[in-house]
Design a protein around this nucleic acid. Sequence first.
RNA 1: GCCCCCAUCGUUCAGCGGCCUAGGACACUGCCCUUUCACGGCAGGAACACGGGUUCGAAUCCCGUUGGGGGUGCCA
Length: 418
Amino acid sequence: MVLRIEDTDADRSRPELIQAIYDSLTWLGIDWDEEYRQSDRFDQYIAAAKTFLDDGKAYYCDCTQDAVKERAEARGAGASGYDSFCRDRDVAPGEGVVIRFLTPDTGTTSWEDAIRGTVEFENALLEDFIIVRSSGVPMFHLANAYDDLDMNITHVVRGEDLVNTTPRVLLLREALGSTEHPMYAHLPLIVNEKRQKLSKRRDDVSVGDYTARGYLPDAMRNYLLTLGWGPKDEIEIRPIQEFVDAFELSDINKSPAFFDIKKLDAFNGDYIRALPIDEFVAQAIPYLGDVDPALFARMAVFVQDRVKRLDEVAPFVDWIHGPPAEPTDKEWKKAMRNEKTSAALTLIAERLATCEWTPEALEAVVFGVGGELDVKTQLPARVAVTGRGSGIPLFEPMAEMDRSVVIERINAALAKLA
RNA sequence: GCCCCCAUCGUUCAGCGGCCUAGGACACUGCCCUUUCACGGCAGGAACACGGGUUCGAAUCCCGUUGGGGGUGCCA
């Protein structure tokens, strides 16, 4: 596999952006054995452009962008783009001069797309596009056509937003002397809730957005696989190799797919639960905050099936050695609504002062009082001790705490109740 | 404006002329499990955009309408 960094536009090729490409591919487990940068190969593209010039397949043009636009507007509705103004003007190279590719005025350019079938464009509609900027830097299409040929690229799989530019590359390849072309496959776009193409500005599209929130690469990869394609047996979560075996480019859908974060969450939760416990602990450590990793390791088995993302782990355990949460009114009322709760908590606090300090003993105290007073005591005790209305089983983490702290928290709850 | 493309439950995928009174997953609702919340189990509501054809038969093929998206850069 070849990794080609298409950095013909200096503005968009900042080091951190290129680093993001490496990071994303690595995170997803995609690896490559050859690497090229188009910025290292400008000479070759320019040389190719020069032969086009010599062969009359390209020409210099000194029209300004404004002039091109003005003439297009003057021509009125229907036509846009460049009007071939300089084709026969014999413009000399120099300041502000670009090289344009001479596109045919008749005929059609078409290809058999692996996903879309036959796609055909009228050549008359293709403008004489720029292949070398006035700065002397080659443009994407030229570099692309040249490299695909030079590197014997067999498959070009990319977003549907590139279909319209494919004829340009095809024409360029032809000019370069190629009679064949790679298999093109134009993928449906992944869209946001507004059904629009994901944009870097508005939407989370980089891997960093997802690692920060604790998504597992395998889960992401698996979820992405179910967008625009699905296995015929309808089993959506399975080992990657099974997908590889079943996958067929031609089975990919043509319509755009919404990136449903809720479903990604569900997949991620599945993958988290499938992790061996020590692997889960290892993965969760970066998301722990102030929580002691050893303590977390002891509680991990209770946390594992309660999270969909790794960044959700801390709140399940941070109250054990850290301060309790502040319960919401709703949580508090739900837990404390029974009038016997106050008496129960009082009794519990008393017995906690002297009981054995093990999960079993703590459970016996809390449930024992509940049984005697015929009131549910687990939730009130939980809210008093953790500050939250839900969470991992109560007694194991409680046994990790100091006796005095537990009693103190229950007394504080009692004070609030009074 | 012009060019290209798309159209099955809320979302996503299955369906490629009869197996479809349309299936799975996510989400949602209810029940079971549980002295929290999850996990797990069970059940339920929920879709072939519309109109014409073709055919004995259409979600599946063709045409149109409507709706949506992409492109239209000296970006990729």
